[in-house]
Amino acid sequence: MSDVRFGMAIDTRTCVGCAACVIGCKTENATAPEFSRDWIYTLLEGEYPDVRMTIRSERCNHCEDAPCVTVCPTGSSHYGPGGTVQVNPDKCSGCKACITACPYDARHIDPRSGAADKCTFCMHRLESGITTTSCQEICPTQSIYFGDLNDPDSKISRALATREAYVLKPDAGTSPKHFYLK
């Protein structure tokens, strides 16, 4: 996976905020009770009848310049295959520096292991040859695009090339690889 650069994009026009991705992730990754690696963010603006709604499925942004990796004192948080950001729980001391360093608050401590936890882009699936993430697989409106940003013909690259997209908190200087299609 050396030349691969994994990224994700959410189609905010078709996402209805059903939270199937949240349940899909929980089922696939067996995250700790009452903790989740992805979530639905809903913003309602305006006064009736002039209202508009933005819905986003959010998770770790797998930043190119990830502050969590920068501050980690043990090397537990690291850049994994395909430019993803991964945690090695065996090296984690639970110091929580990565949690305070993340501008997206995308991390938490898994109380069962005491280690930092977050979205892995379903690396265990990718490494076993499955090309989708669980949130993408379960999405009933197919609003989650996932694939290789370095491949110009991948579905996500095509979407980002032909549609307007944004990332969260671009001024934080983290260069996220998680996009939102307008």
């Binding site: 903790f35 989740s36 401590i109």
Partner: peptide, 18 residues
């Protein structure tokens, strides 16, 4: 009016980090 709703309620992270 802006109304933000999030399904995330991770302990010690939401609503305020501690």
């Amino acid at each position: 009016m802006n109304e933000i709703t999030s399904t995330r309620h991770n302990h010690l992270i939401d609503p305020t980090m501690h």
